[in-house]
Design a protein around this nucleic acid. Structure first.
Lengths: 138, 138
DNA sequence: ATCAATGCAAAGAATTTGCACCGTC
DNA sequence: GACGGTGCAAATTCTTTGCATTGAT
């Protein structure tokens, strides 16, 4: 576990960060809470929220927003990747695209912003859901 | 006002859709409610939520999720554009990029998805906030 | 006249906070 | 040993729902 920049390292924090890393993203606060409770039965949901907020402030995780749902959290440090959500079955696919780097540069030049993060979010129907009348599994 | 595809056209709906169009996006439910109340004092917040849900289902508006904040809604039909949020002062800038079209095609080919919507979200510091120690107006 | 849409109040989620106790530094 | 972190329960905030009434078609 990396250092926590002056913050105390507790079992709860260690556990939560570890789960976020293992999960490959796409955990919401409640899912994380349930996972963590299996290891640490006395853990409280408020600690999960407080810890997520802390991690976000420290830049250890990112908050994602998928249509219709609550916030999802994803550990940082892995390759930049983006999300594609199927409107039929709800599946979330990660993808990468070399074009994002170029788009960042374009936008930065256009606007004078210093860009720290770029996220692409796409929606549509996956191969299976296109066939099944666009609603095969929900 | 366009037709509402079989739904009834009420004053509330007309007013809300009108405000969404005028606002150039970035209204949340409560802001919209307050704006609309000025014209239609008896309007209720539940009607705002119900109406936003309806408009979303009809594809008249899009739901956006900016970091830290609640849902924002934006009328559709204007040119596809994307968002750049300043982490210093919170300003939201719309931009367009020809690269998104290409990225859509790439991803569609890669994954077999039929892609209906693509949204790019970037964050960073605007020119002013880069100078002012990255916190000039908050 | 019919049935969808509304307002109101109450319920339900998701998230935050106050406070006494516990554990890291 | 100090003080930040935690659990618990209560409070807030955001959103949805039940039901009687109103209004569009």
């Amino acid at each position: 576990m990396r250092d926590l920049k002056g913050q105390r390292i507790t079992n709860q924090r260690r556990l939560l960060l570890d789960l976020l890393h293992r999960s490959e993203g796409h955990l919401d606060a409640d899912e994380l809470y349930r996972l963590a409770k299996e290891k640490e039965a006395r853990l409280s949901l408020s600690t999960v929220y407080r810890t997520l907020r802390l991690f976000k402030e420290l830049g250890l995780i990112e908050e994602r927003h998928f249509a219709e749902e609550h916030h999802h959290y994803e550990a940082k440090g892995e390759a930049e990747h983006h999300h594609l959500v199927c409107l039929g079955c709800g599946k979330v696919i990660d993808f990468e695209s070399p074009l994002t780097r170029k788009m960042r540069e374009d936008v930065s030049k256009q606007t004078g912003f210093e860009i720290l993060d770029a996220e692409v979010h796409m929606e549509g129907y996956c191969g299976r859901c296109q066939m099944g009348g666009e609603d095969s599994s929900r």
